[in-house]
Design a protein around this nucleic acid. Structure first.
Lengths: 161, 161
DNA sequence: TATTGTTATACTCTATAACTATA
DNA sequence: TATAGTTATAGAGTATAACAATA
């Protein structure tokens, strides 16, 4: 099926060639052993899960993360939220703007240059429901894992400077 | 410093307020315990590492993955590469085109609709050097982890359908 | 009829620079 | 002088739809 080539001559044999079907070649992938590659792939799967969970709420991943962080930190500064989520000021503005336009968030001046963010009642309701669904979905993924969840999270945390 | 709020009244106290300095508030984050969130953050860090490793080669992450996969599977079909890397046909075309334009890859017709991809000599040289650097960088990250690398990779693999 | 490759296009995320105003 | 928020803009990466050629 798959042939390891040390000389570089013709690796992909046309085995798996079923008459009438498609080849559907299995490719050798040096990427599969790379932590970075596996992280990206796993992250993309979970992001897709998240997107489907958030679709009914009309929230993007970024909007949801903002909503959740403000929900956990009422009256926090917009600049602090941006730092915590690693979202740049310039990108945070329209993000906050959309949630404000939907009546999920309110802002109030702190010093005249800083803004404090707080969830509205509707925002809090949505945030709680969304966070519940997200947590449930997250737990479902963990349950399918053969390894301990805690050490996995710890390892991921160690990579985040 | 940080106050856990069960009632929702005023969580972020302005502790940490150093005279003359910036508040730099530490926000409570329910996201930190989510696997999906931690995966994304860790992935972004490693992607940034990768980008800096690839910069001297003038390669993007996508271009490098393509180069490496074709290098490991000389003569493979373009469509199979796309499936393996989960890159859509429409996006693969310009990716291959750039590497062809740089003389790193050559293609040849297989049946009149399929293309086979192979590295040129220059492409192979670049691929080998790039893969070496990537692998080295990847290992450096693993060394900093307190947990077993193998089980970590296995767990990540389990999430990738 | 399904697949391959291509083109065109759009949408999201992210990144940078410049500006105002405030501390 | 550094920070906060805003605006405008540009660049990736990714998504869909339509098309021609082929199996």
């Amino acid at each position: 099926m798959t042939v390891k080539s040390h000389d570089g001559t013709n690796t992909a044999t046309s085995a798996g060639q079923a008459p009438g079907g498609t080849p559907d070649e299995r490719l050798a992938s040096p990427l599969d052993g790379l932590l970075g590659y596996r992280l990206r792939r796993a992250s993309m799967v979970l992001m897709a899960d998240l997107a489907s969970v958030l679709r009914p709420f009309g929230l993007s991943a970024g909007e949801a993360s903002l909503l959740i962080l403000v929900g956990a930190n009422p009256g926090c500064r917009q600049s602090d939220v941006g730092r915590a989520l690693e979202i740049k000021r310039a990108n945070l503005t329209p993000l906050v703007g959309r949630l404000k336009a939907r009546g999920l968030i309110t802002d109030a001046p702190i010093d005249g240059r800083s803004l404090s963010l707080t969830l509205t009642e509707e925002g809090r309701a949505l945030q709680e429901e969304a966070l519940t669904r997200i947590t449930t979905s997250d737990r479902a993924v963990r349950k399918r894992l053969s390894m301990d969840e805690t050490s996995l999270l710890a390892a991921l945390r160690e990579m985040t400077g």
